[in-house]
Simulated assay, not measured.
Amino acid sequence: MTILVTGGAGYIGSHTVIELLKQNEEVIIVDNFCNSVPEVLNRINIITGKDIIMHEGDVQDKEFLRDVFSQYDFDAVIHFAGYKAVGESVEQPLKYYQNNIAATLNLVEVMTEFNVKSIVFSSSATVYGMNNQVPFNETMPTSATNPYGYSKLMVEQILTDIANSDADWAVTNLRYFNPIGAHESSLIGECPNGIPNNLMPYVTQVAIGEREELSVFGNDYDTHDGTGVRDYIHVTDLAKGHVLAINYNRTHKGATVVNLGTGIGYSVLDLVKTFEEINKVPVPYKICDRRPGDIATCYADATKAKELLGWQAEKTLEDMVRDSWNWQAKNPHGYHTK
């Protein structure tokens, strides 16, 4: 198969490209490097021993997309390209709606023009909103509390409506929980621009001395230690889920939604303490006020992923914190490390 991966140089995209190449798929990456760097392509080449085909450009540019589609006979698309910072989405909602929704419309329109009707979409557990009881399963009502969440919900709806209108479409919306970790080679990992929005890169930057201390937002939740509980999933497990979703789309039409999570909830302090114990590195932290919109507990019911895709998470929290630290320690300046 020939698979287009939008945002394929990003954190989850790059790990997925590796897993696709291991399955001997032909992979074409489209990325504008707004939240990634070209060096990741060199790292993928070292890991896989395969040349990487890359087109630099923006999914918002329909003519650019048409040019890419005209060069290859694509069988499917994995769509990662999108902004992902909740706080920024509140400050700049139009930016998020334009990039995450309008650009997806461009992509789907070009896919239709070229008769490419299989897509795996990078969605998020944030679509479960504030009021569902854990574990979250795919039949629960959805809602959102910020433009980022609304953009994920809207794209899920758009893709589902397209599949309902045309029986040739195969759509799998994958709802991620909390990806952390890095490739076991330590050559690729999470490399955020500026101050990290996610917990693990902040932990590793504190551990390596780049930041003074970790801010833990709230210790008065109804959890075993008062800090928020989340379902942390190793990025390699997540990447393998995308490969299985592509395989699923080969033989199943219509639209489906699938959680990708471990089904286990760990608190912020569970993660910090496990990180310190496994890596023998201290992580100073301070307790701060809760952030608006944060819920106490969030973890997946991953039954459907096992039943439909034959997927389940394999890596433990210990694996996740070890691989995260190995990536940071060996790449103290991320992809700018020589």
Rank of each mutant, 00 (worst) to 15 (best):
E190K: 11
N42F: 04
E277V: 08
Q23S: 10
S185P: 10
G263F: 08
E25V: 00
N131L: 09
Y72E: 05
L238Y: 11
K117I: 14
T2D: 07
I12S: 06
R211S: 11
L153S: 05
V116S: 00
T251Y: 12
L244Q: 08
G209V: 06
P284A: 11
Y97L: 14
G149F: 01
T6H: 05
L174R: 10
F217T: 08
P292M: 07
H224I: 09
G261L: 03
T16L: 02
Y232P: 12
T262L: 05
V229D: 07
N131W: 08
I47H: 00
S70C: 01
A167F: 10
I195R: 03
Y83G: 11
T48A: 05
V258E: 05
S118Y: 06
K306L: 15
L174Y: 02
S186H: 06
N99W: 05
K306T: 13
G334S: 08
I101A: 01
K304S: 00
P38K: 07
S215Q: 12
P147M: 04
E210W: 07
K315H: 12
I12L: 13
T139M: 10
N164K: 14
A103E: 04
L269C: 09
A9F: 01
Q133E: 14
N193G: 15
N115Y: 02
G228Q: 15
Y128D: 10
N146C: 14
E39L: 01
D289A: 14
I52V: 03
M1V: 12
A239T: 12
